[in-house]
Nucleic acid binder design. Sequence first.
DNA 1: ACATTGCACATAACACTGTTATAGTTAATC
DNA 2: GATTAACTATAACAGTGTTATGTGCAATGT
Lengths: 194, 194
Amino acid sequence: MSDAKSIILQAASELFLEGGTSALSVRAISKRAGVSTIGIYSHFKGKQGILDELYIEGFRKVFAAMDILKSAKGPRETILQGVKGYLEVADKYEAHYRLIFGESDPGYFPSEEARDIAEKAFKLLIEVSSLILPKETPIAKKQRIALEIWAFVHGYVSLKHHAISTLISPDEWNTLALNALSTHIDAIISKHAS
Amino acid sequence: MSDAKSIILQAASELFLEGGTSALSVRAISKRAGVSTIGIYSHFKGKQGILDELYIEGFRKVFAAMDILKSAKGPRETILQGVKGYLEVADKYEAHYRLIFGESDPGYFPSEEARDIAEKAFKLLIEVSSLILPKETPIAKKQRIALEIWAFVHGYVSLKHHAISTLISPDEWNTLALNALSTHIDAIISKHAS
DNA sequence: ACATTGCACATAACACTGTTATAGTTAATC
DNA sequence: GATTAACTATAACAGTGTTATGTGCAATGT
């Protein structure tokens, strides 16, 4: 990546972390990066290109947080540890998380490259969640179970972002999510006894 | 509600259903409603006011879909029926659903009145989900269980809106959600045996 | 060594957004 | 009949993403 390109991306990432989407205008990025507005279009495909990069950046962080297959104790604990990492990333990089789930810029749709890394992250999730299933489990079922876990965890994160979230203290959310997940994983284990 | 007010709201609702947020500009609304742009500001509090009305409209539909306490058979079936209704509303009024969960307009934050009806809907959900719990269950725990169910269902809806959703056929989503919820509700019942 | 090509630059413009100020018209009330 | 209130249209302001135009600089080809 050329100098100008990485400088622009750095500026965009900073602005994004500081003030979310509303701080992320083409002019603001170019101003902080010290390039002209048109630079955003010559180095990236406009704002869509910038958002793609941030989208990918976000998924990379999710990816890293879940990539703990080696440090495993039991399958159950490994999954819960992955969930914990996911929740922490969602907190720490809230702007990225919101972008990934369309809460930032309506009209933004991830490019093929961006969707690719999203799919890769999902495949990693399938790997992790397959730990509690018998080895001979068909891949379609493994996928369904991974989806169950993801939907559950993401549901908590998304509700936390909702206005209703004031009913519950911010610190409590992750604990609630982990407890609920714990219950559900036990249910999965006993249902598809390995 | 005065004539002009309801005409404006009708126009806004139509545009919203047709093209989501991107079709919902102040000028477009006023044009379709046959009023001047400033009419949006005299009858509502600008665009924020319009969005508030649509937000409330959306929650009313969720509310209606879940208000099936009377038609109950068993507690388990009643909840699952409520979930089914929720999923159908989320499909039919996708634009409203996205607005409620911030996927439409970053920068929009619901007014106090709008947040009130959201809270009322959550209280109804607490009522419904309490059906599977012993009567003497403390309200805090009832709230946690309701949150579990909501997070789970909403997680499915939200993932369905995500780019990754192409991995699964559209028709399958609701079935998957209902099955997963079914498993989880059984887990709750057996854990907090009533 | 000179000409050409291509890339990055700045400036400005275009079409849009939400919002507001100004001014004109119409209807109801006193 | 005069006043007041509510509507209207037009235009402006400060933003947004994007693009056209023209300038300069560095590398390339002959």
